[in-house]
Simulated scan of single mutants.
Amino acid sequence: MQTPNEIEPRSIKAVVFDLDGTLLDTAPDFVYVLNKLRDEENLPPLDATTIRNTVSDGARALVTLGFGLLESDDGFEPLRLRLLALYTKHLAVKSAPFAGITELLKFIQDQKLSWGIATNKPEVYTTPLLAALDLTPDCVICPDHVENRKPHPESMHLAAKLLHCAPEEIIYVGDHARDIECGREAGCPTIAAAYGYINNHDDIDSWQATHRVSHAQEMIAIIQRYLAKS
Results as ranks from 00 to 15, higher is better:
M1C: 03
I7R: 14
E8W: 08
L23Y: 05
L23Q: 02
P28F: 06
E40A: 13
P45H: 13
L46Y: 11
A48T: 15
T49H: 15
R52W: 11
G58Q: 08
A61L: 08
L69Q: 06
S72E: 08
D73R: 10
F76G: 09
R82P: 02
F98E: 00
G100V: 01
I101S: 00
S114R: 10
S114Q: 02
N120Q: 00
P122I: 00
V124I: 11
T126D: 03
A131D: 12
A131P: 02
A132D: 03
D134Q: 11
D134G: 03
P137H: 06
V140R: 06
I141C: 04
C142W: 05
P143Y: 11
D144G: 13
V146M: 07
E147H: 09
N148G: 09
P153A: 08
E154I: 09
M156S: 12
K161Q: 14
H164I: 02
C165I: 07
A166H: 07
Y172H: 13
V173E: 13
C182P: 14
G183F: 11
E185F: 11
I198L: 06
N199I: 03
N200V: 01
D202I: 01
D203I: 10
D205C: 14
S206R: 09
V213G: 01
S214H: 10
S214N: 06
Q217M: 07
E218F: 09
M219L: 09
A221G: 13
I223F: 01
Y226D: 03
